[in-house]
Amino acid sequence: MGFWDSIKSAALKAKCTVGIHGGNYKLIEGETCKYSKICPDCHETIKTEKHQLGKAEYKFDYKCLTVKKCIKCGQEHEGEKHEEYENVDVDDFCNVMQRCRSERIHGKEHSWTSDGSTDTHHLFRCMKCGAKSEEKKVNFKSR
């Protein structure tokens, strides 16, 4: 075996070691969505499942859980799909609750009021949760 053959052999071995096998999958006889192949480089048998999933449909009313069914074997694959959020309420800590088919906490919605100022900043306080914020004063003379 020459130098380039040994390089090629090492590369093929490394490829298979990290799970990159050659060959083509074929349907396993008597199975619906199960396939196998024999790697021509390491001679390992590799098995996999390949499903043909249909359209995602909601599994329950008022929940964002979806299900896709394989059109061949009926196996279900669950997922999540959110649509058209609307604000429902704001709690005492300014957390915004939103509803899709289910509910989630999403961000803050403060009710700011002036809380005085310093020489350089305007100060604000949330009337609901007490959070504080400041905004730098604009001074056109310093430009």
Results as ranks from 00 to 15, higher is better:
residue 84 E to S: 13
residue 61 D to L: 07
residue 76 E to S: 15
residue 37 K to Y: 11
residue 120 T to R: 05
residue 76 E to P: 11
residue 25 Y to N: 05
residue 66 T to P: 11
residue 81 K to R: 06
residue 51 H to D: 01
residue 90 V to C: 13
residue 132 K to Y: 13
residue 31 E to H: 06
residue 67 V to Y: 15
residue 78 E to S: 04
residue 69 K to H: 15
residue 41 D to S: 14
residue 140 F to E: 03
residue 84 E to M: 12
residue 91 D to W: 06
residue 5 D to A: 13
residue 66 T to K: 09
residue 18 V to H: 00
residue 45 T to P: 10
residue 9 S to F: 05
residue 101 R to A: 06
residue 55 K to H: 08
residue 66 T to L: 07
residue 91 D to T: 09
residue 49 E to L: 04
residue 62 Y to G: 01
residue 40 P to M: 08
residue 27 L to E: 11
residue 105 I to N: 15
residue 30 G to I: 05
residue 134 E to P: 00
residue 128 K to S: 08
residue 30 G to K: 03
residue 14 A to D: 06
residue 88 V to A: 12
residue 134 E to V: 00
residue 69 K to A: 15
residue 28 I to D: 14
residue 107 G to L: 04
residue 36 S to C: 08
residue 79 G to I: 10
residue 39 C to M: 03
residue 54 G to M: 09
residue 124 F to T: 02
residue 46 I to G: 07
residue 99 R to P: 00
residue 97 M to Y: 15
residue 10 A to R: 11
residue 99 R to Q: 14
residue 31 E to T: 15
residue 24 N to I: 01
residue 132 K to T: 14
residue 114 S to T: 10
residue 105 I to V: 15
residue 51 H to G: 06
residue 54 G to H: 04
residue 53 L to P: 05
residue 100 C to E: 07
residue 5 D to R: 14
residue 108 K to G: 00
residue 22 G to Q: 10
residue 96 V to E: 09
residue 136 K to L: 11
residue 3 F to E: 02
residue 89 D to A: 13
residue 49 E to Y: 09
residue 75 Q to A: 14
residue 27 L to W: 03
residue 43 H to M: 10
residue 38 I to G: 10
residue 113 T to Q: 14
residue 134 E to W: 04
residue 65 L to K: 12
residue 103 E to A: 04
residue 5 D to I: 03
residue 66 T to I: 14
residue 129 C to E: 08
residue 120 T to W: 05
residue 135 E to Q: 14
residue 121 H to K: 08
residue 45 T to K: 15
residue 43 H to Y: 13
